[in-house]
Amino acid sequence: MSAGVLFDAPGPKARVRHRIYTVLSVLALAGVVALVVLRLADKGQLEYALWEPFVTPDYLQVILDALTQTLKMAFGAIVLAIVFGVLFGIGKLSDHAWVRWPSWAVVEFFRAVPVLLLMTGLWLAFSIGDGPLSPFWCVVIALTLYNGSVLAEVLRAGINAVPAGQVEAAYALGLRKSQVIWLVQLPQAVKIMLPALVSQCVVALKDTSLGYYITAPGLTAVMRPIYLEFQNQVPTAIVIASIYIVVNILLTLLATWLQHKLVGERKQLDVPMVGAGTTSTT
């Protein structure tokens, strides 16, 4: 039963069957790939002229600048989101109802509303015409509010995952409530939370692309001038998507590494999308 809960270790007949299925699926997958490549070649999408901008230093510079903008937005949003998350995460755990309920309402609101709606709302209210905010900051603030709310929930789950004995021992030693949170619960919770935090970076990075709708800079926004100049929509989309994928995979690898390093084999901290009452966390 090494194969898991779904099937037994295969016998000789099953092995033959599996081999046949393997060959068939290889053929089918190869067929699909061939079809795509043929289609692209047929429509002249593989011609060098369409791919040339991506080996031209000037255009690479433009794309690199756009990548920097995207990373800046994501990084800024995550840093601010951590602050937001710590404030409201601890707020949600407060013993005072007048702190707990507003924090709960803020976190639930921003988790339930689409990021793009937040972004567009901010843009319409503060940026369009000659408002005080640039589209860049609309993206950063919208991502901060959303990711901060998710992080608040992650923080709460992380603190709750710290064994109760730790807290009891700290109180028994005579520590005050704030000391218990800052000296005992948070340092241990951070270790449990870190992989989830890095995964949230992937979400933030992906969501920066939504700035496209509100004319913010970034990797997605830079595509338009390029494909309008060269009429190379397909190559541009492939190249830009690959950049996103590579950066995100690097971040995911970091999250997995942190998980093994800090938490061991335990499952990554996972929070449900909405409603603290609907599902039991960890």
């Binding site: 992906k206 969501d207 692309s209 939504l210 997605t220 989309a237 994928i245």
Partner: peptide, 9 residues
Amino acid sequence: NTPLLMVFI
């Protein structure tokens, strides 16, 4: 790992 907006594009 691809933004949804890229899938739309």
